[in-house]
């Protein structure tokens, strides 16, 4: 076997091993979060786990717009994101940006001003009396709810991680 071929095989094997390793790491992290029935708050790089029970704090309602432009009003249970951050030791006034990610890697960006706005951004665990579905059948989860948007693109289902950046 040529020396060049050996190098190529070694590089391809290394690539495969790294890919499998990263893939399994991601999957194990996802499974740990699902098992606990929780979401992770990353506050400036520091992770805090919040259970669905802790998120079920208050009732609220509001109007959302779907992809077709149809408006509908729903009753929710959950917590305002601003309050959730404050409860976990972060001053909402210092938040500059928030990225919400779902268990299937969908992400939505929010600005600090949107977070600070009253009755704008919530994390819901119940919608119209029914528990929010988790990504796997039969499990419960959380959903980001952003009121006032022209569509529901930022209403992230299967909410898994909220990354907060602040000063």
């Amino acid at each position: 076997m040529k020396k060049q071929t050996r190098w190529i095989i070694a590089a391809v094997c290394l690539l495969l091993v790294i890919t499998v390793g990263v893939g399994l790491y991601i999957r194990s992290t996802q499974m740990a979060g699902e098992k606990a029935g929780a979401i992770t708050l990353n506050l400036n790089g520091k992770g805090v786990t919040v259970t669905l029970k802790d998120l079920n704090q208050a009732a609220f309602e509001g109007e959302t717009v779907n992809g077709k432009g149809d408006r509908s009003t729903h009753a929710y249970r959950g917590v305002e994101l601003k309050a959730l951050l404050t409860k976990n030791g972060l001053d909402a006034a210092k938040v500059t940006a928030v990225t919400a990610s779902s268990a299937d890697q969908y992400t939505a960006e929010l600005t600090g001003d949107e977070i600070r706005e009253d009755k704008r951004v919530y994390v819901a665990v119940e919608i119209d009396g029914k528990a929010v579905e988790g990504i796997d059948a039969g499990t419960n989860g959380a959903q980001l709810v952003v009121f006032g948007d022209p569509n529901s693109r930022r209403n992230v289902r299967y909410l898994s991680v909220i990354d907060v950046t602040g000063n």
Partner: peptide, 10 residues
Amino acid sequence: FHLAGIALLL
């Protein structure tokens, strides 16, 4: 897709 971090790496 706007993947970030380790998901983007994978």
